[in-house]
């Protein structure tokens, strides 16, 4: 149950994790809530931009790219 928690930034491409906590504040938090990024949501890292950042995540069927500043605020726990 208590698998290690880590920042979403460190989720390797192709791996899935479950959201534990969203630390973002203000308008970015609203934006993430709009996308359905709430605790217990399953997130998969899909691909990295050729420049390494942003990273695209599969969130509830949609592919959404987040910058590392944003994904660092999101704590997840590994599912794989």
């Amino acid at each position: 149950m208590s698998a290690a928690e880590f920042e979403l930034t460190r989720l390797p491409v192709g791996k899935r994790a479950e959201v534990v906590r969203v630390g973002s504040v203000g308008s970015m938090r609203n934006r993430l809530l709009d996308l359905g990024l709430v605790p217990s949501t399953v997130v998969e890292a899909v691909r990295k931009s050729p420049a390494g950042d942003p990273v695209a995540y599969k969130i509830r069927g949609a592919v959404i790219a987040l910058r590392s500043e944003e994904s660092r605020q999101i704590t997840v726990r590994s599912l794989d």
Binding site: P54, A62, I64, A65, L66
Partner: peptide
């Protein structure tokens, strides 16, 4: 001025 980034890849 506030700034957010999300980009959907449809």
């Amino acid at each position: 001025i506030p700034s957010t980034f999300t980009l959907e890849l449809p």
